[in-house]
Write a protein that binds this DNA or RNA. Sequence first.
DNA 1: CCCGGCACGGCATACGTATGAGCACACGGA
DNA 2: TCCGTGTGCTCATACGTATGCCGTGCCGGG
Lengths: 351, 351
Amino acid sequence: MARRRERAPRQADVARLAGVSQSAVSRVIASDAESARIPEETRRRILQAVKELGYVPNPSARSLRKKRNKLLGVHTFEPVFPHARESFYFEFLLGIEERAEELGYDLVLFTSTGTSDGRRRVYRDGVNRLNLADGSVLLGALTDKNDLARLWDEGYPFVHIGRREVPGAEIPCIVPDYFGVTGDIVEMLARHGHRHLTYLHGTLGMEAYEDRRRGYVDAVRKLGLEDRSSAGSALSEDKTSLLASWLDELAAGPVTAVVAESEPLAEMLLAGLDARELRVPDDVSVVVLEAVGPEARQRWHALHIPRKEIGRMAIDALVELVDDPEGQGASVVVPCSIVEGATVAAARERR
Amino acid sequence: MARRRERAPRQADVARLAGVSQSAVSRVIASDAESARIPEETRRRILQAVKELGYVPNPSARSLRKKRNKLLGVHTFEPVFPHARESFYFEFLLGIEERAEELGYDLVLFTSTGTSDGRRRVYRDGVNRLNLADGSVLLGALTDKNDLARLWDEGYPFVHIGRREVPGAEIPCIVPDYFGVTGDIVEMLARHGHRHLTYLHGTLGMEAYEDRRRGYVDAVRKLGLEDRSSAGSALSEDKTSLLASWLDELAAGPVTAVVAESEPLAEMLLAGLDARELRVPDDVSVVVLEAVGPEARQRWHALHIPRKEIGRMAIDALVELVDDPEGQGASVVVPCSIVEGATVAAARERR
DNA sequence: CCCGGCACGGCATACGTATGAGCACACGGA
DNA sequence: TCCGTGTGCTCATACGTATGCCGTGCCGGG
């Protein structure tokens, strides 16, 4: 049985079979209230022919003619799935998929733009694949500013998850309220009696963390607490000696609570404290600013980002942008909460 | 600063700026070795104009004209992400994304086709969205046979992950060798001295499990073992009384090894045995035929499906199908392995 | 001097759909 | 009779790109 692979039927074929013109077919297929102009009888004949031929609209032609595709893009600046399980992306995507489905949109995952270094650019040899979709959600820690600026210039409708500032452009972002919730965390620590805090950085200059850093600094100042963060508190995994001296300082000093930027950092901290006979939370309380999920070994007190909800909001904002070409697409700030774990206790006098 | 949102530049605009015709621009843009026809000087002028205007090809027009899109579809008959974490889909997608990226394809996630019952159909009001992509990978336990048959009739290029038989059609499938590996599992149990086995079913009639069931029956017969599966071994979560009597029978009988179709079933089994003072693996060995990941509470002996690899192979098969319209697209059988856990031990005489 | 051949690039058209403009006809009122 | 108002369609065209075909100009050989 050889497989049928003739040309797919077009509206013209349907029209011939039904004895009408192609435009009549188009009117019936893409009917709104417009259908008023086509009487029931003709309409039925056409639909009959459609069924008989197994006609199916050609989306390319359609979107060439109209300007809509019912397609939303998702561009991540790093591959999605490899990390999805433990990280970041997963819950966003969950919300994105859910909401897109509700609104009757399909999703394009832009995977073709990988470069050899494992990052992704929007523009590959100057070609922007994104405009295949009506609009796109962008996300990723390693957002490329040039890409963002260029997209903006082109007037392409997109939304970014997470705040990104580009001079001269007003990127519509869905931003978790890191600033606010980090302040809340500091305040919560203060309520537990902590007066001496320190902030544990990852790599400096990561825009994604700016709001959290500002929120911390701001709240500490406002509450009259004492921040013992030193330059040395900017740690990365390869600077073990630096880490050691920082830990020694911490062990010696009056600090009773640490705000750690990420879970890996908190793990390192925990191990280091352990080696110095200090217990969490009895001696030192710890809060994590980027917890990942319930799989963590430790039940951290942590900042909770409503990722799924953010994914949904991103789609809503994007669709609004797509539907209204005049709209400016303001940014949205989404409140975050603190998830209670087992790593914060009342401050205890040290030394 | 109002956002520029003029009409995107077309090849015609570029042409005007470069002082050539639209077709010359097209020739330069979509150049292969064809570029020999355009001398370096003109070529540079055109590319200069392209850059200046920020021209970007319109994918709809392109794919209307040619017949390719560089777009591959992924259709799951159930929503992907909600289950992805614990289940099934996740690793497939990982491979699919990886391979698509390597080959320079983008991925469309078909999410628009959801019906109210949470399942998904390819055809919604008779419209097949799939042909937006050059071809698609289909997957899902709840595959709709009608959809499959219709797609096949239309000559649409697609690949199914998992075996699906449709009379009159030769669906290209990427199928894990469930039959073979289930046989291997039975043989492994035999080597451990087990002579009396039983097979724990989920809902009957699920095509996805047919191969495993056949593999079990076949191997048991071939090795001269005794199968104590009864009709009662077809269990679902709501038939607790049935389950109880089945467990009693198991506890009483000579069976020393159970082959369980899924992890939830195995969990129920474990609990039931526990309540009857039977230990796994000391009294009863258990192997699971659909383990999910490393997150499981129990380290099951289990069937391992190389999901990521299968995802990759699906893309390869699909691309081949897309590239060669004449190709028949044969099915591929992928060998599976047994992952060693802590739930199989040597048989011990019972009763 | 003429002609063949080649390099360069324009012309025209096709892909399939959507839609404004307009045509033919019917009907009703003046 | 004539005009105005609908109804039920068709006609023609635009969307942006790719590509077969052909014209033009140049060069080299005979």
